[in-house]
Amino acid sequence: MGDRYQRIMSILTETFSPALLELVDESQLHRGHHGHTGRDETHFFVTIASGLFSGQSSVACHRMVNAALKGELDSGLHALRIVVKRD
């Protein structure tokens, strides 16, 4: 796994103490578009469950994840698919 993968995992783990956290590097699926090589850790898919999301709207949960990963989004993380699991 690449550096960004490891950073995202540790940021999300520290921020949300998730009960479930799955991260998939989907960059390969986007090879070729906008010059992406498929090996550049630009597209990720995260599935996350955390007590911090309970009672929050989908938009609010996504904002929390995006905010936690702002540094990554500002430094080359191009797309982030997010699925938030709530009870």
Partner: peptide, 19 residues
Amino acid sequence: WPTIPQLYINGEFIGGCDI
């Protein structure tokens, strides 16, 4: 919101592709 696309309905932000 850091990514595109972004959808608005009735003047309100709905979300991106996932939502």
